[in-house]
Amino acid sequence: MLHLNKLTKQYATGDKALTSVELEIPKGQVVALIGPSGAGKSTLIRCINRLVEPTSGTVTLNGKELTKLGSGALRQARRRMGMIFQEYALVERLTVMENVLSGRLGYVGFWRSFLRKYPQSDVDEAFRLLERVGLDHMADKRADELSGGQRQRVGIARALIQDPELLLVDEPTASLDPKTSRQIMRLICELCAERDLAAIINIHDVALAQMFVQRVIGLRFGEVVYDGPPDQLTPETLTEIYGEEDWEATIDKIDEEEDEAEQGAVA
């Protein structure tokens, strides 16, 4: 469904963030992208929806080549790619509902969005999603009144109301405590399963990634150095991705924690 071919990004400063990345992601697959800071994880997902313009190579979503699209066509393509951010990136001075509805901006005209006259079907969907992430009673609260976990749920609802085929998730848990992190990760993966969505999740917490995803991609210096199932991550591969460190503890932890993970994403 998503295909990256020789994707390369070189910044104006000369730093090469991505070097010829090849990637194929089928429908409904959740992929974790791991790697040290500066490995190009953020650049990679931003090159897919062209928040960062790739230098060369192609991005193909459902047979459509994205890197050559004009601005109008790019906006249409962006509607099918929901994005979730590290610091939530909600518009803090707007209400929860406005933030969720802003996911529909690609579908409604300027004046409709400006006057907040969204189609009733969008409003219904927004309430449904807020209920699904457990925040429907907060619809008229301002985004800056929410806690970190609540904000990220709003961010998830905003991405999903776009009716995407692909989720681009940038460090969703980096600003959250461990418990909330897990709840958020579980919520994202459950929703992907419900809707048969593919997702690319940038994450630095290897254990957390292994717990939830079907496939892990390791990035180092802008190159893919590991691509495989999470349970085949060995200390050697982690050393190759991150550098020398004692990895046994990181990997062992997972098996114990898997059992105590509870159901019920909504806290």
Binding site: L51, A77, R78, M83, V91, L105, G106, R158, L168
Partner: peptide, 9 residues
């Protein structure tokens, strides 16, 4: 960035 990513004009 977040609003741009939704496909907003």
């Amino acid at each position: 960035e977040a609003i741009t990513a939704t496909g907003a004009s």
